[in-house]
Design a protein around this nucleic acid. Structure first.
Lengths: 256, 256
DNA sequence: CGCGGTCTTGAGTGTTGTCAATGCTGGTGG
DNA sequence: CCACCAGCATTGACAACACTCAAGACCGCG
């Protein structure tokens, strides 16, 4: 399952066999299995490990005193949580499982050893962190500027493209999608009812098929247009990416 | 003007005279002066320098193809922009001046030399970055979960507390505040008209006086309660902060 | 004194939220 | 194998918060 991390990092730079097997070792240590809705770590706790997602979906979220919940990001296989948060000492948010989960718990110093031995991996991890921050900024833009339907479409685009970039979209254009409508609502800052209605619209337009924890995107181009989705913030490299720019709509489709 | 950076970093750890003078040197190099509304760096450009805010306000923002603008963060004196963004190569957002501005442009390798010489400064810079990320997450929560009035109140709380932590609130409880209502709207994801009305409400309640580019907070406790503002994400240390926790309302006031 | 940018206010509209009920589905135990 | 249950999805009716449009006031600056 480390293959997803490797695929992801290779969006930044190709990795050597040695680097790949070092990553394999790293992730083979402490395996942790969680059920849907379990917390990996809670607000207020001190982070002990870096968590590497092996299988399943999770999310970062924050609970307000009155119970409102904001989901801050979704984690899919290959994602690393909180590479550096030991500096602050205390978690200001929680991380919870959305589906049944398998994660590897990695000690901070193990990562440090790895990064010292392989400078390219250090840069790859950094790149990964920065992409995460860029994604948070895009979410902020999503919540601040886009309408309900655009928000839903945008999040679906992002998740779909990320899943595809690690090879989890099958030949029919479908990928696992265990995120419930309640989760979507808490991520997008709209009510459950409204989320449901926006999804209906997307279905009615023939853009997506969403059912049984699976998302199939039938017209990615249209979905992207509807959302104003511009994938460059994900910094993905796909075959031929060097040949295309970032400006035109054709570029956008090519990159996505 | 480097004093603001020093004050800020000392929220993380006390600095030695040597460290302080090294920071002073660093910031004395390339001075850049900008007018209100000038851009420091634009979306699509390659970042050249790390920018240190000496005087004035700035903001990070993103423009959508159709012209909508989302402000992602505000910079006040002492703030460092984009310590590490050279890894990604291209800016996915712009940074613009809100008021007349004086900044120091620092080369990435100068920072690296400094951090190697003073490991504590390295950790302090890291801490600073992580606080920035925590703040972005708080903004996401603000946009996703809070109503218009809460959002406005929350942003005022945050800005006021940050200004106070670097010594820019005077004895009357007022601080410079060059952010226009249009800027606030783009930061909070609400319309200008609505922003205006929410501000009127806060004035009517006697919580703030906002006029002439100056913000005076008359009842911070009430403003914080209204906003559900919980300042721990800013990780500020004030005198006695070691003695208080983070849970109760009294703690919150003490820390803020 | 005039001008541009900013702020304020009113009126009407509509997107989105709330409440509440019902339907669906996959898993569990008898 | 069926009945039941819990969680999730869907729908309708109504309310409200927030948006748009539009006009006018204010204020600092040249």
């Amino acid at each position: 399952m480390v293959v997803y991390l490797i695929r992801k990092l290779q969006n930044f730079a190709p990795l050597s066999d040695e680097e790949r097997s070092a990553l394999q070792d790293l992730a083979g240590r402490r395996l942790r299995v969680l059920n849907s809705r379990d917390d990996i770590i809670e607000q207020g706790q001190k982070p002990g490990f870096v968590n590497l997602m092996l299988e399943g979906f999770a999310c970062r979220y924050k609970i307000l005193p009155d119970g409102r919940r904001q989901i801050l990001s979704f984690f899919i296989p290959g994602d690393l949580c909180d590479l550096h948060n030991d500096v602050l000492g205390v978690m200001d948010h929680s991380i919870g499982a959305i589906s049944p989960l398998r994660i590897a718990q990695i000690a901070a110093d193990e990562i440090e050893v790895l990064m010292t031995r392989f400078p390219r991996l250090r840069r790859a991890f950094w790149w990964n962190e920065l992409v995460g921050e860029a994604t948070t900024r895009e979410w902020l833009t999503n919540l601040g500027q886009r309408t309900g339907s655009e928000r839903v479409a945008h999040l679906l685009c992002e998740t779909f493209v990320r899943m595809r970039s690690i090879g989890l979209v099958d030949e029919t254009g479908a990928c696992p999608f265990p995120i419930t409508q309640a989760d979507l609502s808490d991520a997008l800052g709209i009510s459950i009812v409204h989320t449901n209605r926006m999804l209906q619209d997307l279905r009615a337009e023939g853009l997506i098929v969403l059912k049984g924890r699976s998302l199939q995107v039938d017209d990615l181009g249209a979905l992207m247009r509807l959302a104003n989705f511009e994938p460059s913030y994900l910094h993905l490299r796909r075959p031929g990416a060097d040949e295309v720019g970032h400006g035109t709509e054709a570029d956008r489709e090519a990159l996505a």
